[in-house]
Nucleic acid binder design. Sequence first.
RNA 1: GUGAGCGUGGCUCAGUUGGUUAGAGCACCUGGUUGUGGCCCAGGAGGUCGUGGGUUCAAGUCCCAUCGUUCACCCCA
Length: 435
Amino acid sequence: MKIKAINGFKDILPEEVVLWQHIEAKARDIFRRFCFQEIRLPILEKTELFARSIGEATDIVEKEMYTFTDKAITMRPEATASLLRGFIEHSLHVKQPVHRLYTLGPMFRHERPQKGRLRQFHQIDAEILGATEPGVDAELMAMGQLLLTELGLAASLEVNSLGCKECRPGFRENLVQYLNERQDGLCDDCKRRTHTNPLRVLDCKKADCKKLVQDAPSILDSLCAKCDVHFSAVQRSLDNLNVEYKLNPFMVRGLDYYTRTTFEFTTNDLGSQSAIAAGGRYDGLIEQLGGPKIPGIGFALGIERLVLLLLDKEDSEKVQQSTIDIYIAALGDEAIHFSSALIQSLRVKGISAAMNFSGRSLKSQMKQAGRLQAKHTLIIGENELANHEAVFRNMNTKQQESISIQGDFETQSSRLIDRLNDTNDYSDLYQSIKI
RNA sequence: GUGAGCGUGGCUCAGUUGGUUAGAGCACCUGGUUGUGGCCCAGGAGGUCGUGGGUUCAAGUCCCAUCGUUCACCCCA
């Protein structure tokens, strides 16, 4: 019986990895422009870290975490908690007032897999720590938008404010009261949510609930003066940066630590999973985790979801895949022996080169060279060894010529590289492929 | 946790009202004159039809169970 990957865990095959690298490279480039530094974090953390940050009563903590109960250790379901733990543990705040950090890697949640949702999934996570100014909120959203735009993806940005610990409890109370008075009009899930997570009702997709919620008390009307000023300023800043957004007073977060500004980049092209990136401000969290009183804001992107969107794009999203510089077709044991030394010498000098040790027919080896998209092929057989002249073939033009294989491998490889440089049009070294 | 759908060679799928050695395309290998790729042609290798029961003279084709998987709910990136 064959061993397969476990449910919700997926192999990312070489063809698709090209896309991943494209996404990651683009993200790193954007982060560079916005002055973010990378931080690498462990995948395992103490369970308590997530319980305290994400919230004991959230679905994530309650039933979706991969936990080694005997060791009180959990595989991270998200990145922010770990990042803050690291930030606090190393007292990074003393080095400079504001930190801009990003990290990327696998996250783990034990949910039922479906389209755009895996048990091991990957996120790109960006956080700004130590800045409370609304302009920073806008800047972060602008960065997310730019990343998506440069990846060729259209997503809409929805923005909301969840208030702070001053104003949210009051709002929550009003909302629960409103919902309690209208239980009959709610779906079963929302009846439950009224008690477990009333804000969630605002986000229900059922038509009846949606209608009912339209007239519910609005969080935006309930903000305290400070939150209101902050949120207005965020919106002004977004306008100032030409970031398009939609106000969505019904948007809610699944993690408890969010305060004030929250936002979500969404798309309609992902089936039931509409969020491709989401985040918000969490001003009390660092302190709550035992750190200094420092505000923070951040967001996470789901890489799998980006990949799905890029794969779906019919207008041939093209990603560059490198080809190899030269393929050596060796005929006969002697030639194979010789070629293996020559190819090593080429590789030492930075050339990507392939050969085949099986001694198959020239036709078969040429076929393989073609499959590898080799720019050139060097043919070496008995005759060539005897004459010290190999056949050098340009795979695009099909032109062939003799090239000397005299001297030691050092001089031979140098000669070959000169030859490659002569004919190489470097724009052709990469060939666009559609995945 | 709940619901629905699907499980045939590496991939995408055909397989008529159950009936001889289970097919196709793609991919792979070998040939199409002696040492040359991407097209074409020919041939070849590769499947206990997810697994286990049952019905039947006979099951990939019907029934049950089980496992796997997909999508949706829930939740979320």
